[in-house]
Simulated assay, not measured.
Amino acid sequence: MSAKYYAPKGGHPGQEQLLTDRAIFTEAYAVIPKGTMRDIVTSFLPFWDKTRLWVLARPLSGFAETFSQYIMEVAPGGGSDRPEGDPDAEGVLFVVEGRASLTVNGATYELTEGGYAFLPPSSEWTLHNTTDDMLRFHWIRKAYEEVPGLDHPELIIANEKDIAPTVMPETEGRWATTRFVDPTDLRHDMHVTIVTFEPGGVIPFLETHVMEHGLYVLEGKAAYRLNNDWVEVEAGDYMWLRAFCPQACYAGGPGKFRYLLYKDVNRHMPL
Rank of each mutant, 00 (worst) to 15 (best):
C245K: 08
A164C: 10
I157T: 08
T108W: 13
H152A: 07
Q69M: 13
V233H: 10
L218Y: 03
V231N: 13
G114A: 06
A243Q: 08
D229S: 13
D151N: 13
N266Y: 08
R58F: 11
F205I: 05
H209Y: 12
K263Q: 13
P59K: 06
T26R: 14
G98V: 01
I194F: 03
D162W: 06
L271M: 14
V92H: 02
F180M: 07
W175T: 05
T171W: 05
G214H: 07
L135P: 00
V265M: 13
V192E: 01
S122G: 07
R174E: 06
S123R: 12
T112A: 15
R136G: 00
F137V: 07
H213I: 00
D264P: 03
E84R: 13
R179G: 09
P165I: 01
W48P: 01
M190H: 06
A223K: 15
P121L: 01
T108C: 09
G79T: 03
M239K: 02
M168H: 09
H152Q: 11
M1I: 02
M72F: 13
A248F: 05
E90R: 06
W125F: 14
E90K: 06
E170K: 15
N129Y: 08
A75K: 15
G114P: 00
K4N: 13
P46N: 09
G252S: 07
Q69Y: 07
P87S: 06
G11P: 07
E212A: 10
I203C: 12
P13E: 09
G98L: 04
L135E: 04
P87Y: 02
D132A: 09
P165F: 00
T20W: 11
F44S: 15
D86I: 01
D81K: 11
H12W: 10
P59S: 05
A248H: 08
W54Q: 04
S101V: 01
F47T: 04
Y116L: 05
V74S: 03
G11Y: 07
H138M: 09
R179V: 06
S122R: 15
D264V: 00
L186S: 15
A158L: 05
V181S: 07
P183H: 13
N266E: 10
G114T: 02
R82P: 06
R179K: 14
I71P: 03
F25H: 15
A107V: 03
N266H: 15
W139A: 00
I156L: 14
L102R: 10
D182S: 11
P46C: 03
D132P: 10
F67W: 01
Q15G: 08
L111G: 05
P87H: 08
P169E: 09
L206I: 00
D182Y: 06
R179M: 14
T184Q: 15
T130V: 04
L19Q: 06
E212H: 10
V217Y: 04
M72G: 01
F94N: 02
V195R: 01
E90Q: 14
P76R: 05
A7M: 08
V192T: 10
L53S: 10
L218G: 04
V92G: 00
S61Q: 12
R136W: 02
L19H: 11
Y259F: 15
G14A: 07
W139Y: 14
Y29I: 02
F25P: 00
I194E: 02
T178M: 01
P153T: 02
G173S: 08
A23L: 11
